[in-house]
């Protein structure tokens, strides 16, 4: 097992290097210029723009910049953002709590809702509950978040006025009042994310349950005279959860990528919003840092999911 983990970690190194090279090349070769906003400003003539490019190190060819970037990163330094002229890691550090709060909580809620729904849907297959749950999960699948986001905003924030549309990241929770305010501003973005994530997990849990329900060990358990409830909860659910747990583990890195559309729509200052504004402004160091960290997390959680699978399912053995 230990050997397996070490081997996987060693394989991860070239994977990450290639990933970073590809992303860097795409960013460097894509059209766009961090100084584009100055292009038509007569107060910022070409000489000044050239000087700013020099200051930011953009005057060198991109392979040279990539090697320099790699050197920096190997020392744990992700460089400075072109826009804030301050270390990228500070920016990410500021954003991470908001993303964990909103996107992370949404993921947790989605898991907590999806598993029971999936179980009931499978046990009572083709019942009314199953039909309705199926209907809603397909709605969740097929309606994009920019649509649900706008509809929820229009109905609950603008028409009903229940929730704010502007997420205040400077709100300090000091008493019940501000706590309530924090809950209110989190409801809409979290709902949008929950609707989407629940949909996928529900379907997965349901099909996993259905696979197990027809197996012989279930019939054996029933034949022993165990109650339906005990059979389902003790035997079927635990076995059905195995693939779902790996799916959940694989989904965790996506939390750290933030939710680009939802965060932007509700002005949550999370990592997704940082990523998209940085892409728009060609702020290469920030985009590189975010995508690279995301790549590392994906590799790690892939490994965790595989290891977890082996722990949960005795039939799987690594050597």
């Amino acid at each position: 097992m230990g050997q397996y983990v070490v081997r996987r970690l060693l394989i991860a190194i070239p994977t990450l290097l290639i990933t970073s090279l590809v992303i860097f090349a795409i960013l460097a070769l894509a059209p766009g210029d961090p100084l584009a906003q100055f292009a038509l400003n007569p107060a910022v003539p070409e000489e000044v723009r050239e000087r700013i490019r020099e200051q930011l190190g953009l005057n060198q060819p991109w392979p040279v910049r990539y090697v320099k970037w790699l050197q920096q990163v190997s020392q744990g330094n992700f460089g400075i953002s072109f826009n804030t002229k301050a270390p990228v890691l500070d920016l990410i550090g500021q954003r991470l709590p908001q993303t964990l709060q909103v996107v992370g909580l949404a993921y947790l809620i989605a898991v907590l809702i999806a598993i029971p729904i999936g179980i009931i849907s499978a046990v009572k297959q083709y019942s009314l509950f199953d039909q309705i749950a199926t209907f809603f999960s397909f709605v969740g699948f097929s309606v994009p978040s920019f649509f649900t986001g706008l509809v929820l905003m229009l109905v609950f924030a603008i028409n009903l006025g229940w929730f704010p549309i502007v997420y205040s990241s400077t709100l300090k929770v000091t008493d019940w009042d501000s706590f309530w305010q924090q809950i209110r501003q989190m409801v809409l973005p979290i709902s949008v994310l929950v609707v989407q994530q629940t949909a996928a997990l529900t379907r997965f849990m349901r099909s996993s349950m259905l696979d197990n329900l027809t197996l012989d060990y279930v019939r054996t358990a029933k034949a022993k005279g165990l109650t339906d409830r005990l059979v389902v909860m003790r035997h079927v659910v635990t076995n059905s959860l195995i693939p779902v747990v790996t799916l959940i583990a694989l989904g965790i890195p996506t939390i750290f990528a933030g939710a680009i559309i939802t965060e932007n729509l509700y002005r949550v200052n999370g990592l997704g919003q940082l990523l998209i504004t940085s892409i728009n402004n060609s702020d290469t160091p920030v985009v590189m840092a975010l995508t690279f960290i995301f790549a590392i997390l994906t590799v790690i959680f892939n490994l965790i999911a595989d290891v977890l699978y082996g722990v949960l399912d005795p039939r799987v053995r690594y050597s």
Binding site: A157, I165, V166, S168, T170, N264, Y266, R267, T277
Partner: peptide, 21 residues
């Protein structure tokens, strides 16, 4: 407080319709 982000249309809504800002 100067809050940034989002889009122009919802910024106008936040003033005119929900009066948050």
């Amino acid at each position: 407080e100067i809050k940034g982000g989002g889009d122009a249309a919802s910024a106008a809504r936040a003033v005119c319709e929900t009066q948050e800002v």
